[in-house]
């Protein structure tokens, strides 16, 4: 069942993508599907698509992903890493048996040996990240806010569909908000309003919108308005 809470990062999807109920769409997901690293013997990360109904990434059924006009995407991120505590235990054991501290080269060799011996027996950590994509609005809500996950998701999306995701920040949201064309043009000129502190002359309300003459401290509101036409 789809989640009831969480944080989202919104993106605008720029470019043409296959219909979400088409074979081409399923093929794009399949080409970048999640691949297991359960038996890997080196530290690594695997990221790829799975469907909400199948966490293995082996099937992408329309009925698992369709939510009316939107589609429910899911990314699986597995990470396999040698636990630092195990490295520490084996290093201490080796140093005790040799009666001295290990050199840098010996520590490196020990780590390689532990990776080959222990990693195939260690299960990776698993993270499932959801996204809600409304192709009609060219809007995608990613249920992740960390920089690392967002970057990984964006790369995966580009690899899969060959189109860019543009984060819906204050400017991009303004451009997609349906405001009038002249307001949109003026967007390129706006600069922060510098609200006066207590005790400052109220006439110091300033922003450097317009021709750039209005950002000098001490400009009055009327002067600013005049400067802005």
């Amino acid at each position: 069942m789809f989640r009831r809470s969480g944080g989202t990062t919104a993106y605008f999807v720029e470019g043409k993508t296959p219909a979400t109920d088409s074979p081409a769409f399923a093929a794009a997901l399949t080409a970048q599907r999640f691949r297991s690293i359960e038996s890997a013997s080196s530290e690594e990360t695997s990221i790829g698509w799975v469907s909400p109904g199948d966490p293995t990434g082996e099937s992408f059924l329309v009925e698992d992903m369709a939510l009316d006009d939107a589609v429910w995407l899911r990314v699986r991120v597995d990470r396999k890493k040698l636990p630092a505590v195990w490295v520490g235990i084996h290093r201490t054991e080796a140093e005790r048996s040799r009666g001295r501290a290990l050199s840098a080269r010996e520590r490196k060799e020990l780590r390689v040996e532990l990776e080959q011996r222990l990693l195939p027996r260690i299960l990776p950590s698993v993270q499932l990240v959801d996204a809600l994509w409304h192709p009609g609005r060219k809007l995608l809500l990613l249920f992740a806010t960390s920089n690392a996950l967002r970057e990984e998701f964006q790369k995966l999306f580009v690899r899969s569909f060959g189109v860019q995701l543009v984060e819906a920040g204050p400017r991009e949201l303004a451009e997609h908000s349906g405001i009038a064309r002249d307001a949109l043009l003026y967007l390129n000129e706006v600069a922060p309003v510098r609200w006066p502190r207590l005790g400052e002359d109220r006439g110091a309300l300033a922003g450097s919108d317009g021709d750039g003459d209005a950002d000098e401290a001490g400009d009055t509101v009327d002067e600013l308005a005049e400067a802005n036409g």
Binding site: D68, W72, L132, S177, G178, I179, A183, A214, N228
Partner: peptide, 28 residues
């Protein structure tokens, strides 16, 4: 899913109300 999308739309519409005020040249 519809409620997530609706929330995003409503916040965008609120933002648009602000922009209508803020992006007037006589705003200051």
């Amino acid at each position: 899913a519809a409620n997530f999308m609706l929330l995003h739309e409503l916040v965008t519409r609120l933002y648009r109300e602000f922009l209508r005020v803020r992006l007037r040249r006589d705003y200051l």
